[in-house]
Design a protein around this nucleic acid. Sequence first.
DNA 1: ATGGTTGGTCGCCAA
Length: 258
Amino acid sequence: MRAISWNVNSLRTRFERVAAVINRHQPDLLCLQETKVTDEDFPHDAIEELGYIAEVHGQKTYNGVALISRDELEDVRIGFDGDPCPEQARVISGVCQGVRFINIYVVNGKEIGTDKYELKMKWLTALREWISSEFNNDEPLVILGDFNIVPEERDAHDPDKWRHIHFSPEEVAQLDALRDWGTTDLFRLHNDDDHVFSWWDYRRQAFRFDHGLRIDLAMGTQRAAKICSFASLDRDERRKGDFEAKPSDHIPLILDFS
DNA sequence: ATGGTTGGTCGCCAA
C-alpha cells in the first residue's frame, strides 16, 4: 500500500498537479491539506475520473483536508473531540487496508507570544489527548500531514532562524510527547541525510537557495513502522521542468507499507 | 524588525 501526504495549497488551483502526482506515484491513499475549498465545491467528479473517491472536510478560503483513495475507507471521522477551534477544518481520519491514517493540518502559530501560537499549543495538546483516548498505540496508526514543526536541527537550513516559530522548544516538545505516546518519524526510518526539506517559502527565492524546512511528517506507531518499507520526499514536484507552473510551497511525502 | 510571493477573494488575511 502506498500513502502520500501533501499540502497542496488550494486543490482547485493545483488540480492538474494533483492528477500528475496520482499518475506518477499511483497511491492507494492521498492525504491532502490546505484544500481551501468547501465540501459543496469539492471536485468529486474530477477525482472519480482518476479512479478515486474523496472523503472531505473543507471550508471556505482557509484550511481544509481530504482523504482521496482508490477504495472506500473504513471508520472515516471528521475533526476531533475537544478541538479548541472546531470551525477550522484541520483533521480527517480513516482506515485504509488495516492502517489508521490521521490526516492533520496543524495550526501555523505565526510567532511565539501571539494568540495563534497559544492556539497551536492548545490545539496540539487537545489532538494528542483525543488520539490517546480514542485509539490504541499498539495498533497500526499513522499521524501525518503538515505539522508546522521542525523535528530536529538537521531538518532546517538554518535552525536559528526558526526558533521563534516551527522550531521553538515548546513545539519540539509537542512532537516529543507524540513520540512518548509510541510513535516514530517514519521518514527517518529510511533517510539519514541532513537538509532534506518538504517546504520552502515562496518568497526570497527560498527553493532556489534551498532555504527549506522539513515540516511535513508521518508519525507512526511501532506496528506501522514495522510495515513501513519506504519513505521519500518528492522534490521533483517543486523542481523546474514539466511541472514548472505554479508549484505548491510543500512537496509530497510518499510512504509505502507492506 | 523588515521583508515581499502566493492563494482566495476582490480588501486584505494567512502562510
